[in-house]
Amino acid sequence: MLEIRDLEVRYGAVPAVRGLTIEVNEGEIVGLIGPNGAGKSTTLLAVMGAARVRRGEIRVRGSSIVGARTEDIARSGVSLVPEGRHIFPHLTVDENLRLGLVGRRDRDGVRAGLDWVHGLFPVVGEFRHRPAGALSGGQQQQLAIARSLLADPELLLLDEPSLGLAPSIVGDLWDTLGEIGQRGVTILLVEQRAQITIELAARTYVMHNGEIRTSLTPADAGDTDRIAAAYFGAKA
């Protein structure tokens, strides 16, 4: 579904992603973890055409999307839930959701899509007429994910969805991500919470300083030493 080969992205002279290669197969949930500044968000922005690719290749369903416009990528079945949510605080919850529909390729399933996200995240129905900025952080995160799902993406990119959420809520969110994966949506999950990401994902890449250091599977989830070593950059 998503193939990134030898990706390089720089901000000015500073390299943020250096020769990154990862693959996400159809229907998989794949994790991407790493410390602050590792280049995780930059990688997702490059996929969305929102960070300029210096070198390398990004393919979705086999066709290259390097150089395509952000809005065209968003309309082609790829959706990003950005870091920090980026809901529109002055618009109502309903209006935020309607903006999710902009990226949809076909209009047929709108009704069913709305029912689905309202089932997954009842809060977006309950507070539909409130300004989105009046929701709590966790509710805003749910809104941001619901909004992306309404684009009916084949590939869902999530940038630190657990940020600022209480542990019990993260548990619920993880169940929901599992459910979304069950529906056939392919997921690339960027996270700081290493352990639970490794447990959920078929494969979790560990990123450091713009490079992939190693990849872990759920079998490694119990091996905290190995995770810590990979995460904090000691040679594994």
Partner: peptide
């Protein structure tokens, strides 16, 4: 309000 976020939605 947020041009980039809007483009990310299509």
């Amino acid at each position: 309000t947020d041009f980039r976020a809007a483009r990310l939605l299509g």
